[in-house]
Design a binder for these strands. Sequence first.
DNA 1: TTAGTGATATCC
DNA 2: GATATCACTAAA
Length: 172
Amino acid sequence: MSEKLTREFFHRPVLEVAPDLVGKLLVRRLPDGRILRERIAETEAYGGAEDLACHASKGRTPRTELLFGESGRFYVYLCYGIHWLLNVITGEAGQPQGVLIRAGAVHDGPAKLTKFLQITGSFNGNSATDDPELWLEDNGFRPEILTAPRVGVDYAGDFWKSVEWRFIAKKE
DNA sequence: TTAGTGATATCC
DNA sequence: GATATCACTAAA
């Protein structure tokens, strides 16, 4: 039994949504009709105009416009020309906040996850609560959560690279 | 450790 | 127009 996450779920501060998303189900309906489900094992919070690791901190641009916008949408970003990274927008409009989905229970790594789920830039800007091909569900699973510094943000300065905004489901 | 890859932003 | 950057992965 599982319930689709609502817009209210995402319409909260990113530091509440990010740990809450750990343990939720990411559900993908493929073009051929198959349904894939993967439990989220790891997320990272990005947000706040001061967060130097957040794309949007360098200024509002067409690409980051989504981060400032409505919560409950997907922000899909092509990294290093090869890898699609999946984010969900959270928080109030006007605040650049988002949660990076870093890993699933099976597919460990942000780009492996999007590759498995066949997520590409075509999902950028889609609604996370009202999309026929990709959404999130709560099946009541509540893992124990560990925190850690974020990955791959060395450029963001001593403080922002060490802040523990990474949330990982503890292994059983 | 480094090569691969391409959108985006920034600089002529 | 050109160049630098980047929330990664796989191969070596």
